[in-house]
Design a protein around this nucleic acid. Structure first.
Ligand code: DUT
Ligand code: MG
Length: 481
DNA sequence: ACGCAGGACAG
DNA sequence: CTGTCC
DNA sequence: GCGT
């Protein structure tokens, strides 16, 4: 983070998506530059060309590209057109170097041949590796309407089970939220990383009309409404919901009479309303006090903390995610403790039902606070609390860091981290970060780190992200190739 | 045309 | 194996 | 739906 390029506006060529270009753009921004999406003689201060992408044969393609982006006359422009090496050198020397040695002469039409060997070398860099930082988004974005509407589109796709469309929308929204100027046209929109033709079109429509017809159609459709209703049942996903709709089911009453429900689905139906409600943060805290109190009877050394959205600072939580551990404990030791806890909270009435009991390390439940504790929630203390979804993750002491990362999330943050691990030839899961070692035909996973949350991130070249910074839309993990 | 995280349980 | 969930 |  420096002010090296403060006040400068760079136009990148190619000025979109691609991995390396994207990372250089981030580098520029980190040192104070702004990125232009189109050429402006008075606004753009430098054109930065990725020479190994663009100048493979000749400069003509580059000139065409620049014209398309708004450059009127190559001969007359005062804006320097330089290779991106200039940027890299400036940063590494921490000073603004003269552009002269890096300029690309567009006035001369004949091709400047690059050496193949240097091309290769540049291209075969092992890992495109920038250090990530917690991102900042522009609050009060000038594109808030588009962001909101696109979010609703993503929700429609989620309901209809199009996971990768959801992902694509999230990525596009993430970019759009950081843009500080209004994006009003297809051509502006499609410049943004993560925005392709389909979403660009939508952004233009939203910006013109403050509306998206496709969204209204989707929201209004009977199919989507029923999908939403049925998917609200715990244990019912896209496929089952579709199936039921095809079979003519139209209400939860229709479902109640079915004989093919799993145990979990029947519970999901029974607690339909309660489990679709979000839990106020203050109530989660009471659950933590209660569970800690109960665990204290089992073994005072056991620790229980809430992860998930609670740890990320959410004001309301979809469920309560407990991480349960004990200094130096192995999984076996914890399982014994957990069995005791289950007995204890079952006796006390807190544990209402079990959805899944992963013999391994997880317990997914429905739980209600007893009246005396619920007093702290409703101020009355006469009734049992609402049934809440409560998950317990048992964690051997040595794996605490990896487990904390996993169970703190959010899910998108985990995915980006794990994807990054892949790029480093490693695997990240809830038990640790492992190096993939292949001997012969078999491949082994060799533990690199599992105890220290901070070390795991740092090994992946990810700066420390406080839990609050792991929320989608807040963190900014650069695209990977 | 392909990948988009990784792992666990129910049925 | 498929579907669902964390 | 997007990037490669
Ligand atoms: O597909 C998933 C879902 C969840 N998780 C991790 C991250 C998440 O934070 C944690 C707990 O899951 P949960 O579904 O409770 O999500 P949350 O982040 O706590 O949000 P919510 O407020 O909806 O509970 O498990 C994943 O890694 N992948
Ligand atoms: Mg949660």
């Amino acid at each position: 983070m420096t002010s090296l390029f403060l006040g400068l506006k760079f136009l990148f060529i190619p000025n979109s998506k691609a991995g390396v270009s994207k990372i250089r753009q981030k580098l520029a921004v980190d040192h104070g530059a702004q990125i232009c999406s189109a050429f402006g003689e008075t606004s753009t201060t430098h054109v930065l060309v990725d020479t190994k992408v663009v100048l493979t044969a000749n400069t003509e393609a580059l000139i065409r590209t620049l014209k398309k982006l708004g450059l009127r006359d190559i001969a007359k422009t005062n804006v320097p057109v330089v290779g991106q090496e200039w940027l890299v050198q400036c940063v590494s020397k921490s000073e603004l170097l003269p552009t002269a040695n890096y300029t690309i002469d567009l006035a001369r039409p004949s091709a400047k041949k690059r050496k193949v060997s240097s091309l290769r070398k540049a291209e075969s860099r092992p890992i495109v590796d920038t250090t990530l930082e917690p991102g900042e988004k522009v609050l009060d974005s000038p594109n808030q309407t588009s962001v909101d509407v696109l979010n609703e589109m993503a929700e429609q796709h989620r309901i209809n089970g199009e996971a990768y469309k959801v992902k694509a929308y999230r990525n596009a929204i993430d970019t759009l939220q950081r843009v500080s100027t209004p994006v009003t046209s297809y051509s502006q929109a499609i410049q943004l990383e993560g925005v392709g033709p389909a979403i660009a079109k939508k952004i233009e429509e939203i910006s013109r009309t403050h509306h998206l017809r496709q969204l209204d159609v989707s929201k209004g459709s009977r199919h989507t409404q029923l999908m939403k209703l049925f998917k609200g049942i715990y244990g019912v996903g896209t496929v089952i919901a579709k199936k039921w709709i095809d079979e003519g089911m139209t209400s939860l009453d229709d479902i109640k009479n079915r004989t093919d429900l799993t145990d979990a689905q029947r519970l999901g139906l029974q607690y339909y309303d309660e489990w679709n409600e979000r839990i106020p943060r203050s109530e989660c805290t009471i659950h933590a006090e209660y569970v800690q109190y109960m665990l204290n009877r089992v073994d005072p050394l056991i620790e229980a903390t809430i992860g998930g959205s609670y740890r990320r600072g959410a004001k309301t939580c979809g469920d309560i995610d407990f991480i349960v551990t004990k200094p130096d404990a192995t999984m076996e030791a914890l399982q014994a403790d957990m069995d005791n806890l289950i007995d204890t909270i079952k006796q006390a009435g807190y544990l209402q039902c079990i959805l899944h009991h992963h013999v391994k390390n997880k317990l997914l439940t429905g739980c209600s606070l007893p009246p005396l504790w619920n007093k702290k929630v409703d101020g009355q203390g006469e009734e049992w609390g609402k049934c809440r979804r409560v998950d317990f993750l048992l964690v051997p002491w040595k794996e605490l860091g990896a487990a904390m990362i996993y169970f703190t999330g959010d899910d998108e943050f985990n995915k980006k981290l794990r994807y990054r691990a892949q790029k480093h030839g490693m695997v990240l899961n809830g038990t640790g970060l492992y190096k993939i070692v292949r001997d012969g035909s078999k491949e082994r996973h060799e533990l690199v780190e599992s105890f220290d949350e901070k070390k795991i991130m740092s090994l992946l070249n990810v700066k420390w992200h406080e839990p609050e910074q792991r929320n989608t839309g807040v963190f900014d993990i650069a695209w990977n190739g």
